[in-house]
Amino acid sequence: MNNIPEIEIRNLSVTFNMYDRGLRQKNIKVISNLCLKAEKGEVLAVVGSSGSGKSLLAHAIMGILPKNAVVTGSMKYKGLDITEKRIKDIRGKEICLIPQSVSYLDPLMKVGNQVMIKNNKSCFEKMRKAFRRYDLCENSEKLYPFQYSGGMARRALISTAEQTEPSVIIADEPTPGLDRKMAYRTLKYFRDFADRGKAVIMITHDIDIAVEYADKISVFYGGTTLETTRAENFIKGEKYLYHPYTKALYNALPQNGFKAVKGFQPSPYEVSEGCIYFDRCDKRQEKCRGNIPVSVFDNGSCFVRCIYGHSV
């Protein structure tokens, strides 16, 4: 056993270079100082505020960001840097992305045909097997995406990841529109996949599901990771979660009080120095405006980015 994580991301920043008025350009930093590790045999759930850059992270790894994006920091796959050239060789083969929007399906192609990688018998069998697993009947292979419901399209997208045998699956919100049974079946597939020594990065809003199937949960806010913690800490309760935003997420769940913290995530236009959660935090201090230390716990596999560290 070597301990090199399948995917390791350190201090990733993504900046968009945009035209403002006329020919004046401006830079918008949408991801900053992001750190993340996907280990073999683990499902890592990425949760957090919408618009916090979760999908951009997936796109950054896959090398499919728009041309005006500038990426800095380090991204490694099996210990080696993910370069533009390398990702072209491995994406779709060793790293698979299940995209978020159901509009990623080609509207002019029958769904069964677009899930198959090649038009031959074994690919057809694989497609049919995956469709059967997700209760898509043989009729639905011949339908076009507009005839699909949101949940059916989602299941077709998930089937695409079963067409090859990758070592990493990045699933961008795989469960919205799916009923519990289907969602659990999908998650079970990810779990089995990870248990075979592969890695899964699952971007989701569904904390309930993440808690049941993931090993670790990484909490995103405003383009950065605030905390990575063991999934069971979300069951154990609020005091095992350290960052105030993680606690707020926990308390906002319908079964945990349904509390709503006021305010919203700062937009990339107005990000300043210091803690990104400053405006909404009820425990903020003057020193939160400065550099925020990262404190590591659980043998280095988890961390929190907060001046209170993991002692509160």
Partner: peptide, 17 residues
Amino acid sequence: DEITTMLDAVTQSQIWH
């Protein structure tokens, strides 16, 4: 119709309240 499935828990709670 599933108006908050794509939102984080805090935003979901804000909108529903």
